[in-house]
Structures are given as C-alpha cells and as structure tokens.
Design a binder for these strands. Structure first.
Lengths: 366, 366
DNA sequence: CTGAAAGCGCTTACAG
DNA sequence: CTGAAAGCGCTTACAG
C-alpha cells in the first residue's frame, strides 16, 4: 500500500495522510483559499489577521473566497507557529457545588469577549486529580490557568509555573508570596451581619462553623469572632457548633443547638448549604423563622432567595472573583515575568438582608 | 534588530522567535529530550506514544530524561500532525441554570477518562452566540460537539457538519432525521406522577406549563395530558396555567390557582423552579404543603431536596443525557460517516416521591 | 502591497 | 529496534 517513492508528490502525500486521519479533517486549508483567490498564502494570512498592509481590493477578494469555501483556519497550526494558544484553563473543585456556576459563567464571559476559549475541568476535591488537570493544561499550552479550588497542592501548581504559564489561585494565604492569589476579605460581611443582628436586639448568637482543616472556614470563623467582639457579643462555647458544610450538617447542628437552654436567638452559618439544613431542622421542630429564631447564611447562593422565608445571607461575589482572576492572568501574560506586578485582587463580602432575620422572641431572654 | 542573514542558524532563529513569543513557551521540546537521551526524536515520540517497538532499555532511558527535564509534549504540534485534537466541545445555554452542572460534570468525567479535554461554552439563550460558539469549536478542530441547548439553529449546526465534525443535539425532534439527537421520553415520569396522585385520592389536578414556543414544554404538557387521560383525570381549562419557567412564574401562577374555586388539590409543574415558586406562594397564603395542597415538580434539581418539605418531583437524569451524548460522539468519530448508525439514545423520566405530596384535604371535595 | 521560504514541534512510512 | 526526513497548516522577516 505504501509503495510510493519517498519523493511522492505533495498532493498524493496529503491524500495518503488524509485517509489515515479521522474524517473531521476538512480539506480546506489556506492553500486552497490562496489558489482560488490567486494570491499567496501569506496574503491570505494577512487578510485573516487584519493586517493593514493589504490592498483593499485584494483583501475583499480573499474574504469572498473564504466565505465561498467556508474556510476555517486551523488553530493548531496557528498556535504551533505563534507559541500561544488563546486558551485559558479553569479548574474548580466541584461544578455541582452551586458556588461555582456563577464563577465559571463570568470567567467564560470575559474570556470569550477577548477571543479566548476556556478549557474547563474539575478536581472533585481530589489532589491527585489537580496534578493531572494541571498537566493536561500545560500540554494544551494554555496561556494561563485559574485554579479556583479551595485546597491546592504546590507541586501541582509548579507543573504550570515551570513552563512559565501564569497561574492565579483563590484564597491561598500560604502561597500568596509565590503566586497570584485572589483574596477574599470576610470582615465586612460578618461585621454587617453582627451589626444587623444586634440592632434587632440579639445577644445570644450562635455560629455554625465547618471542618477546621479548611482554610476558608477558619478565616470565616475568625471574621465572625472579630465582629462579635467588636459589638460586645460574647460567643458561648456551646454556641459554636461544627457541621460538614452540607445541608445534612446544618440540620444536625441545628438540632443540637435547639436542645440547648438557653438557646440562641440567632444563628450565623459558615455557608448557605448549612443554613438551609438549619432552616429545615428549625421547621421540623415546629419553630418559625424568623419569629422564633433568626438565621444568616454565607455565600448568597441562588437557593438563598428560593427558601421560604428567603435567607438573609452574606454575599460573596463569584463574578468579582472571576474578574479578578481573569484580569490577573491577562496582566501576567502581558507584563513578562515579575516586572510591574499587579497587586492581588481583594474581594469583599457584604450582608444581604432578606426574610430570615427579625427581632428575637421576647421570652427567650433567659 | 532583524539584521540576521536569511540563513540564520536554527538555534538563532529559534531564539529570535522565542523572544517574540509570550513567555509561556518552554524551551523544552522533543529535540532536547532526544539529544539528552542520545536517541532520535522518532524514538522519543515512540516512547511517549507507547509504541512496543522500542527496546525496553532505550525506553527506560528516554522516560528518565523526560522526567528529569520535565518535558511536556506540545499538543498543538501533535494535533496538527495527527489531524485530531482529542478535544470535545460542550455547549449549554446557561450554566447558571441548575439543570446543567450535573450534565457538564458527567460529560467532563467521561471525556477525562478517555484522555479527552473539553472546551466549554454557553450561549445565554442567544442564537447568534450559538453560531459563534460553533465556529470557534470548528477552529479549534474539536473532534465532536455536544450541543445541549434547548433551542438550536440549523445553520449554526451546519458550521460543524460541513467540516465533518460529529455533532449531537438534545431533544430536537425536528432535526432528528439529520443529526444525532438525545431524546427525552417524558411519558413514564408523568404517568407515575398521575398514578401517585390518583392513588392518594386526588382528582382535581392542575398543571403549570411554560411558554408554548419551547418544544420541551409542549412535550411535557402532552405527556401530562396523556397520563391524565389514561387515569381518567379531566383537566379543567382553568387548571392549566402558564408560567415563565422561573421561580417568579411559579409564584404568580400559584396565586392565580389559589383564587379559584373549587381549587385544585394537587399541582404538577413543568419544572422544579416553578414548583419552588408555587411552594412559596402556598406558604405565603398560609397553606400547608402537603396537607392542604400537593405539589410535584419536574427535573429533580438539587434544590428539590433542600426545600421544606422536600419536593416530590419527576427525575430527568442529566448524567444519562451526558453519557448518551458522549457515547454518540465517540461512535460517530469511530464509525466513519453513515455506516452502522447507533440508534439515538433515549432518556426516560421517573417519579421521586418525597414530602410534598399527601392525600387531599377532605373538605376540598367541592 | 505581495510572495517565496523557513520553521513552529510533533509523528510516521520507509529504509536500514 | 532505530534514525533521517517529510509534512501537518499556519505566520512572518525579508526581499522585492
């Protein structure tokens, strides 16, 4: 079958290769366009890339042929030649976590506006998978990677930086010195939450925290405690409960809290999912929200507004996170290496008052 | 700056180009590996691609050098040469719609398992954007595209098929003859829902539908009506109400329903979001769910189980849809063109009974 | 304003 | 089992 001479004609050789390829190879390349338009491939390329140095009439003719032939440039060839891919990588831990869709949406929106495509992947909270993800992004020669997972492994990140690919992380104080990091500032939101509650008359405020090995949880708890102190609220030991950051954890933590006496008149949770669980437990116990107990969540997920009553919560803007990450990546891409570093973006939180908070029931004052 | 002779040495030339490139070019290529391992690039390539025709000792040496040098192959070059990209495109209408995360997750999971990356994008329900999305996927030379939006434009799809790129659609009966399409079968779920309700004693069942220009809505309504008829349920004209498929639409539709007399003892909605709104309206009107009114949703979104009471709903498996789409794409990719067509996958629905359904209140029997 | 030619980093049929 | 060489489809410095 391959008894051609080595010096087989280009056309024949091309055919030979084509027949081996998957059938999505379209036999339309820049050469066809050039031939048909009666110009060189260089000129076609210039037209495609909007070079001003082409005679308008020539450009017009080329454009017509491109349209006629439905020619679509081959990005692999372009990337190989240009050394960049116009591709960003986005890695999150779990797309099913309702925190992420908004972030992904915003990131993709920004990228698309710049003609950048995004390769998306998730780690499922698996550290080994992070390394695999990073590796594949490096192979794809992406121009930048946003690693928006809560926990990251430095070796995995190095996979990218070793290839000089800009990387931006989310909320990794420990790695801030070495990598660009989007930093969430929790203080404002928690201060506003405590201010809101104390203004309503609450003093017995509980906090539902999460596993202490999660950095973001620890920082939320600290922000809560700082705010409580600022407003003269003393957090009783038994009012600090721990959940698993999911609905179920909120449910069981609330059950525990409801068994206490005195019991808290208000609860702030480390995330909305646990607030949802807490609401369910309160309802099941026959309590009314907010008349019998006030609840404030954290995140402001879409479900927060779908609850009944709608959940008062601390908003953390995923769109701001995405924008910060994207801009940082673009910046790192342009300003080569260390010169002129852009300061790490900070994202602030703030309270959204909805229907799950009200003055405490009067009889609960002891 | 470019006063080199044309016959500049490769090393110099490379440097020259490199300095123009973005700095993510890593100066590590297959040549470096070959040189360091004392073999040809052909051999390195064979080792990377797991060819059996390499002497184990040689392969081992090459692998060591690869590890030492942190060499990562350049996918653009590979793709250009191979004519395929190991890349699938996934387009959805709106990632913030809680219907999609599960689908995306499953699709990406399957792709990753095969060493395929996925370029993800969304149209925001904008038809022009679909064309742009498709075009960009074609430029990326993807090996297949799953178009999981509710409404599609045929011209946009043709952009891909013209380049012989396999495409699979979701729920497009009108295009089934020309393109692979995942077909959702609504009948089972609605039959089970009506059976459940009638068994509980309901006869006055309302249906909350959506805009009639959405194909999937029409098909759900038809499935409801067929099931109702089968169980001898007559749908009063005023029990058929229309919403916007969002929470707000469910709320106002429920308000309308509650003003009716006699009013329905049960409601089935065309999607969960409207069921959530309906629950809110019922709660606001002082009704208890399910004691005063039973509600069944459609989709089985994550929020369905977070409601209080938890929502009984008709489950539509996004994972099955993703699996069907992925398999179809792989199939189309392997069996060239039309030969041996795989039948279009069908995805069935079924009822999940939770807490929002119960026997009707006895006094409501007119 | 335009073209000829080189080269981006791979893979593979062919010839040993 | 291994290497030399061609070519995938682009872009661009250089020379007109």
């Amino acid at each position: 079958m391959h008894n051609f001479s080595a010096r087989v004609s280009k056309a024949m050789h091309r055919h030979e290769i084509a027949s081996r390829q998957s059938y999505n190879s379209h036999f339309m390349d820049i050469q066809q366009v050039a031939k048909r338009a009666g110009v060189s491939t260089a000129t076609v390329s210039r037209v495609i890339n909007g070079s001003t140095k082409v005679r308008p009439a020539t450009a017009e003719r080329v454009r017509q042929v491109i349209a006629e032939l439905n020619y679509v440039p081959n990005t692999s060839a372009r990337n190989l030649r240009m050394g960049r891919s116009e591709l960003f990588g986005l890695v999150v831990s779990d797309i099913k976590n309702p925190f992420f869709p908004d972030l992904i949406d915003a990131f993709e929106e920004l990228a698309t506006a710049q003609g950048i495509d995004v390769i998306f992947t998730h780690t499922n909270y698996d550290r080994d998978r992070l390394a695999t993800c990073m590796r594949r992004m490096v192979e794809r020669n992406v121009d930048g990677i946003a690693v928006m997972t809560s926990e990251v492994d430095e070796p995995a990140i190095e996979l990218a930086t070793r290839s000089h690919i800009p990387v931006v992380l989310l909320n990794q104080p420990a790695l801030e010195s070495r990598y660009s990091t989007i930093r969430v500032e929790y203080s404002r939101g928690f201060r506003e939450a405590i201010a809101h509650l104390t203004k309503l008359g609450h003093r017995d405020i509980a906090f539902l925290t999460g596993p202490s090995d999660l950095g973001s949880v620890v920082r939320r708890q600290k922000a809560f405690q700082a705010a409580a102190q600022k407003y003269g609220i003393y957090l009783r030991k038994e009012f600090l409960v721990t959940g698993d950051m999911r609905v179920e954890g909120g449910r069981s933590a609330m059950e525990k809290l409801l068994g206490l006496k005195p019991r808290p008149t208000a609860l702030i949770t480390a995330n909305d999912l646990m607030a949802v669980g807490a609401m369910q437990a309160a309802h099941s116990a026959g309590l009314r929200i907010p008349e019998d107990i006030s609840i404030i969540g954290f995140d402001d997920l879409p479900i927060a507004a779908m609850m009944h009553p709608q959940l008062t919560t601390i908003h953390l803007s995923r769109r701001e996170i995405a924008a910060g990450a994207f801009q940082q990546l673009v910046h790192l891409l342009h300003k080569k290496s260390s010169a002129d570093p852009l300061p790490d973006p900070k994202v602030h939180t703030h309270l959204i008052v909805r229907g799950s908070t009200a003055p405490p029931p009067s009889q609960s004052k002891s």
